[in-house]
Design a binder for these strands. Structure first.
Lengths: 347, 347
DNA sequence: GCCCTCCTCCAAATCGCTTTGACACCCCTT
DNA sequence: AAGGGGTGTCAAAGCGATTTGGAGGAGGGC
């Protein structure tokens, strides 16, 4: 059942039927209702392909997920971000198109999406310092919102980000207040922008106490359980072991706990741990009492906000670049405590 | 730059240009090359919207992800499945459209995708027993592949699944061989089909040793760390505590480990654990030596296979329903050992 | 020299919608 | 009675590709 057939059944022209269904004013209220009723009765739904061609809009937004061809690791926060964004899209009648591409093919993917007219805009995931994608998208004229920021880009662009620097600064200060001086940083990969900001917050907080970060206590890796475990062992086996950890993700925190307990220590008593908690739906930080003390910011909310911003940019071209900086909250869990007196017990 | 403009520049008709670019035989090889060169030079890319309308194909497949409105939990395996499927789609020039919908709206979403012509086929995630979606899709005539199976549906349909029953049966037998008799099952939600099959494998293995499963040692919940933790405490605090666990996911396994160590026990020595490992990229089961003994089957592979099957069904309509049953491998890790002699030490 | 095939290429229709411009028609005003 | 301003409707031209049904010209057979 298409528009023409429906129009014939009603004894009207396709024009009128189209207008009636799309709420244009120049159609009699009585006919509008007649049309609406017929559409409902015949289960008519306008063909999306035809609408797209006729209007020149894709009614779709793209999420390009670069897949590091070497590690092939999907970012675990991705599914919750998508869930938040998807909620907004479906509410607005937009489709969400996912492109999983090897990271070296990402630029080509944007050109393709643009020139074929597959999407009206894109979300950029996982920005790196001096990320080249921003210039590419600006040049293409494809509307976009970055989830995160790309230090070093002199261009202005739309972004939604968490105040990563501040979050890690506050977390570090909290550990310092508890008396910790040997604090290990278990960071994400430091070509990622957020990881650099977190590191900056960490070192700034140390510097305010005239402390220098010990390179032997800083690591930077994929945010997996394994990497947390490895970093934990390294820092605990250090000649001057860490008494506290600051980790970039829940999974790394879990790896840390395994390392800590593997060395016969107890998290929260012998060793303190603070994590960054993205509030993932399938990785909740405990129930009523959080397991980990954490800086928390919901990545699902970030997805919602990014999607809303993008749809705004698409429907109102020419608006100046928008920014949204979210603050992470510091929540107290069972993984932190005052620095233990005397040296930690030997393994 | 569209087809007409390109044709004018070349002094050819749009027909010929279209045919040249799409590899039709009725065009001179010399002109074909001339056209290809011009297309490359002018960076011509056919408009996807126009192709879709003209061919009547969507060149897109849909993944409808039902989001339980109560728990709002995204399945963590989802991102790896998508990564595998997405690889296949982009290789074949298809778009992947993701719809995140409240589970009560799922049926309506399928009708919509079909009648608007947004997709050529869909992947069905998370089938339940007697899943109504299968009949809906059959009636709609929308090609689909189910990731998993839906017991109770008398209809035949395309699916890709892991042999969950066999996997849990083998794992249980392995624990029985090690001398365990008090084995706890930490299952996923048992309205999900895979969970029922796993439970069946578990009870069958017990039955073959004339053992009855103890309801007090069986739990069924979302596959999160917390649920594993809770189930672990319950089984360990049981008057006749479990000496071994069989868990449905890596995250539940991690929760179990936390519970076990929280009770002052040691996993692999005092208590054995076997998990089902979906081989998620960000949740690897250890490095060279696996942490958990596990039944393993890559969900990313399942994504690849499902996508390939779906594209096959789309391009060759009328082929009889296809099935692909994957066997999980049983890999030995550090979390299992012979049953401890005597009662476990009190906490 | 004529006719018939192939080989290339093209004009025009088509996909299903939106949107522009025009046209009746009715009611008012002057 | 003529002119003017709404209202409600429609015919037709698009969007940018594919696809059908020919058509012109070169080459070959007789």
């Amino acid at each position: 059942m298409n528009l023409k057939e429906l129009a014939e059944k009603l004894g009207l022209s396709p024009t009128t039927v189209s207008r009636a269904l799309n709420g244009y004013p120049e159609v009699n209220e009585a006919t509008r209702e007649r049309v609406a009723a017929a559409a409902r009765r015949h289960n008519y739904r306008p063909n999306a392909r035809a609408i797209r061609l006729a209007t020149g809009r894709a009614l779709a937004v793209g999420h390009v997920i670069p897949l590091n061809t070497r590690t092939e690791i999907m970012n675990p926060i991705f599914s919750d971000f998508i869930a938040g964004a998807g909620e907004i899209y479906s509410r607005s009648g937009y489709d969400m198109i996912l492109s999983i591409v090897p990271d070296e093919a990402e630029e080509a993917t944007y050109r393709d999406l643009m020139s074929r007219g597959t999407v009206d805009g894109v979300i950029v995931h996982g920005p790196k310092t001096n990320d080249p994608r921003i210039k590419v998208l600006k040049d293409l004229g494809l509307p976009f919102v970055v989830h995160g920021r790309a230090t070093g880009s002199e261009l202005d662009y739309n972004w939604v980000d968490v105040n990563n620097r501040r979050a890690f600064q506050r977390a570090t200060e909290f550990l310092l207040h508890l008396g910790h001086r040997r604090i290990a940083l278990v960071n994400g990969l430091e070509h990622m922008d957020f990881a650099i900001r977190r590191r900056a917050g960490f070192t700034e907080a140390l510097a305010s106490q005239s402390l220098n970060p010990d390179p032997g206590l800083m690591s930077s890796d994929e945010m997996t359980e394994i990497s947390g475990y490895r970093a934990g062992l390294r820092a605990l086996d250090h000649p001057q072991p860490a008494t506290a950890f600051l980790a970039a993700s829940m999974l790394q925190g879990m790896g840390l706990r395994r390392a800590i307990e593997g060395r016969g220590l107890h998290m929260g008593r012998d060793v303190s741990v603070i994590i960054f908690d993205d509030d993932l739906s399938y990785l909740r930080n405990g129930e009523d009492v959080p397991i980990f003390t954490a800086t928390r910011s919901s990545v699902r909310d970030a997805g919602r906000l990014s999607a809303e911003m993008l749809l705004g940019v698409i429907t109102q071209p020419g608006t100046p670049p928008q920014h949204r900086l979210l603050e992470a909250e510091l929540i107290l869990g069972q993984s932190t405590g005052p620095v233990a007196i005397g040296p930690a017990p030997a393994p």
